[in-house]
Design a protein around this nucleic acid. Sequence first.
DNA 1: GCGTATCGCGTTTTT
DNA 2: CGCGATACGC
Length: 717
Amino acid sequence: MLNADIINKEVLNEPQYEAVTTTEGPVLVIAGAGSGKTRTLVYRVAHLVAQGVAPEAILLLTFTRKASQEMLWRAGRLLNDTCSRVMGGTFHGVANTLLRQYAGELGWGASFSIIDRADAEGILNLLRSSLGLGKKDKRFPTKRALMNIISGSINKSLELEDLVTEQYGHLAEHLDDILVLRDHYRQFKREQELMDYDDLLVNWNRLLVESRDAQEAISRRFSHIMVDEYQDTNRIQADIVRRLAFTHDNVMVVGDDSQSIYSFRGANFYNIMRFPQIFANTKIIKLEENYRSTQPILALANRIIANAEEKYTKKLFTSIVEGSTPKVYGARDERDEASFIVRTIYSLVEKGIPLSEIAVLFRSGFHSYKLELALGQERLDYEKRGGLKLTESAHMKDVIAFLRVLVNAQDTLSWNRILLQIEKVGPATARKISSHIAASADIVSALQGYPAGKIWKASYLRLVELFRQLLSESRRPADQFELVLNYYQDIFERLYQDDFPKRQKDLDQLKAIMEGYEDLRSFIDDTTLDPPENASLADDGRERLILSTIHSSKGLEFDAVFVIGLADGRFPHGSAQFGEQIEEERRLFYVAATRARKFLYLTYPRQLMTSDRQLRRAGMSVFLGELSEDSFQRLSVEPVGEYGFSSGGRVATSVSFGTRKGEKLDSHSFVVGARVEHPFFGKGVVVEPVQGRSVQISFDRHGKKKLHLDYANVSLL
DNA sequence: GCGTATCGCGTTTTT
DNA sequence: CGCGATACGC
């Protein structure tokens, strides 16, 4: 069960942790980057469980799915199976679970389906065209901007009118159109029994406000509530936390105002400032020691944030004094930038840094395309985070649409998606058919009853036949999916002629996931709220390089970090012009730099390819220009000469990691002639005996390498 | 005339 | 890659 030794050693020796774990009542922890915010929460869970609090009564709220996995994993090391009983997850995930349980309280039927953001945009698209908006006027907001306005008014708890005048002033003359659209949008959703992400939180809050029983029950069920990254909460989330704890006030929130990077979705770091007023007798704890990064990295990070216009009194310090100076590399172009990264990764791996402890971070998803190409050539395995998730790609949405309409026949959006796949059926026809289905009780007879056009009748009948089979008898979700795949295969190959083999893998993967579900509805809910990640799902133990947007890297840490694309116009993002927007970009850079433990590389291309294949000169990011030259070291030549692109030789694609981190290596075992294995370089043989802590090994596929036993992950075969 | 196919354009970040 | 405008086919 509980490993008391770890708690005693790791927690009680740290004064801050002791304060954090033993304090009762509301606690606000203001903590800098790398100060162990998440650890603090995990230790508190451990402490509470040790005190006899039932794990089921603890609620841990985080923002990103990754962060919550990370946290539960850490908790698992302390609590083992107990931690699986702790309720942890994102606000939205927990909201979904609770709402499903208490839906009756609000008089909702059991059937409502959750739509994601892109679907919501689809609704707006339909409405906008049905209202005859948009085409007339180029200045009319894009669908994305409309979504931001409409859902932003919910998140920020602002009246739509105020929001438009404050932030979208140029749209003021279209306010009436936007209001009409908003009302249509709500009406449409109500009719279709659809909820989107924002409604989920609004309704959670409504449940707590309107149903005293539910509020009472939920508040008693969770006797201890903890929130990570509190600076990223919006008004509604703060309200929810307040109401959840109304019977006991046992709330601990952790946050850092310098890392507030989500204001674009309504996050409001004044929530942190307000916390002591919302909860009486709040105890405030500051954690200012950084346990993550070396002094040179921290010094650079401090310089970044020192340039911020609004400064908060928080000075980070570290006891890890020694370390390598952050490097800045101005590459010729993106290709050169990618090549630099590949070379440097090789040298880092040789130093013994595991591939999974190296991360490449960037501002926007597409900034890594060139690098991904280079990594592919090198056969270097990577995992990309941020950007499109598995279920967000078009082909996945296509197949999931079939499953969604099986759960909710009223889901007009998914019907549209399905029908548009038929050749010669466009938006207009699709809309007619789907509203015909929505008005009818039985899917199959509705489909059969619709008069099909001559040209597309044949393909349409295939679809009817599919649904007849899907609904003819009760089938397992996996079997239903199989039927859908059979039908979809042709369409799939037509739609994605260029790259369907690559996409096919995703479909297979989804099939594997479906096998684990008995109930189609729960599968649909899970995929809308918690999209599975592409590669990490099949965890085969291989270590992968991490490519991530900075937003998705929040809360994580790596031995070595590359921040790429630090060019003018890329970072800060070109459209960030007003003061507070630039400030948020700066905090973003700060977050990126503070992910690094030991090595930090900042790179930028001097030339960028524009969309029309023209080369354009790009300057260095203003954020780099602001830093004093002594906080980093400029690289003009290759850092390590030995590695270029390996043209013929390939890097091992399947790597098995036998040794665990921290396992002591016995230097006497590495005698000349011993067969060894390295996770990255593969198999090899010792050619020179141990000198100090170094040994020379000749690898079958990589030649001779001198490896340091304290770092390198070498194991005897 | 309506609806669909196609070409060209610009691309933030996410629960 | 999704969107809007334009061109073509029924």
